[in-house]
Computed example of a mutant assay.
Amino acid sequence: MASGYTRERRTRLEALAELLPHHGLVSRMVGTDDPVLWVWHPRTGRQTIIFATPSNRGWLFLWSPSGQGSADELEHTAAALRQTLDMAQT
């Protein structure tokens, strides 16, 4: 049985995942007790893992490299994630 924390994390990640196709991104939920969202950009092939964590400002999404977005601003977060995955690999 999932804890309240795990359910909240999953709910936040699912809400973000619903928006990603509108930003040209594909995602898949990974993990059960500690869910994360695996996200990739079909055109660039770039991918990252999204973590959801509570903070003193509410829930945050974190991704590499140094990405961060608010769970209360899903559209802004999805756009920032798209921008990260649009960047050409070096």
Results as ranks from 00 to 15, higher is better:
residue 12 R to S: 07
residue 56 N to P: 08
residue 39 V to P: 00
residue 41 H to I: 03
residue 84 T to P: 01
residue 28 R to T: 15
residue 29 M to Q: 11
residue 58 G to Q: 02
residue 49 I to D: 09
residue 87 M to E: 09
residue 37 L to P: 01
residue 55 S to L: 12
residue 68 Q to T: 11
residue 35 P to H: 05
residue 6 T to R: 12
residue 5 Y to S: 07
residue 20 L to D: 00
residue 4 G to R: 12
residue 83 Q to N: 13
residue 46 R to L: 10
residue 32 T to C: 11
residue 19 L to A: 05
residue 90 T to L: 10
residue 18 E to Q: 13
residue 39 V to W: 00
residue 86 D to W: 04
residue 46 R to V: 05
residue 83 Q to S: 15
residue 85 L to H: 01
residue 3 S to N: 10
residue 10 R to G: 03
residue 49 I to M: 10
residue 78 A to H: 04
residue 56 N to E: 14
residue 84 T to H: 01
residue 77 T to E: 02
residue 1 M to E: 03
residue 66 S to T: 14
residue 36 V to L: 05
residue 24 G to I: 01
residue 35 P to Q: 02
residue 88 A to W: 08
residue 47 Q to E: 15
residue 59 W to P: 02
residue 44 T to F: 11
residue 80 A to W: 04
residue 41 H to M: 04
residue 2 A to F: 14
residue 57 R to A: 09
residue 22 H to S: 14
residue 15 A to C: 11
residue 46 R to E: 13
residue 25 L to T: 00
residue 63 W to P: 02
residue 78 A to W: 02
residue 61 F to N: 02
residue 17 A to F: 06
residue 52 A to N: 03
residue 34 D to P: 02
residue 72 D to Y: 06
residue 40 W to H: 09
residue 84 T to R: 04
residue 60 L to C: 03
residue 24 G to L: 10
residue 60 L to V: 02
residue 49 I to Q: 13
residue 67 G to R: 10
residue 5 Y to G: 02
residue 18 E to K: 11
residue 60 L to F: 04
residue 61 F to V: 07
residue 50 I to W: 00
residue 15 A to M: 07
residue 23 H to D: 08
residue 46 R to A: 11
residue 55 S to T: 15
residue 15 A to T: 10
residue 16 L to A: 05
residue 27 S to H: 13
residue 58 G to K: 04
residue 62 L to Y: 08
residue 76 H to Q: 15
residue 66 S to I: 11
residue 75 E to C: 03
residue 50 I to A: 02
residue 3 S to T: 15
residue 47 Q to P: 01
residue 57 R to M: 06
residue 71 A to N: 03
residue 38 W to S: 12
residue 90 T to Y: 05
residue 5 Y to D: 06
residue 12 R to E: 06
residue 69 G to D: 05
residue 90 T to S: 10
residue 3 S to W: 08
residue 15 A to I: 09
residue 58 G to I: 03
residue 41 H to D: 08
residue 25 L to N: 00
residue 75 E to F: 04
residue 70 S to T: 04
residue 17 A to D: 13
residue 90 T to R: 12
residue 57 R to C: 02
residue 66 S to M: 14
residue 26 V to I: 12
residue 27 S to C: 15
residue 18 E to F: 08
residue 4 G to M: 09
residue 26 V to S: 12
residue 9 R to L: 06
residue 27 S to G: 13
residue 22 H to G: 09
residue 63 W to Y: 13
residue 17 A to R: 13
residue 81 L to C: 08
residue 69 G to W: 00
residue 40 W to D: 05
residue 32 T to R: 14
residue 21 P to M: 10
residue 65 P to F: 05
residue 48 T to F: 00
residue 10 R to P: 01
residue 5 Y to T: 04
residue 11 T to N: 15
residue 63 W to A: 05
residue 43 R to G: 11
residue 80 A to G: 08
residue 73 E to P: 01
residue 6 T to Y: 09
residue 7 R to M: 12
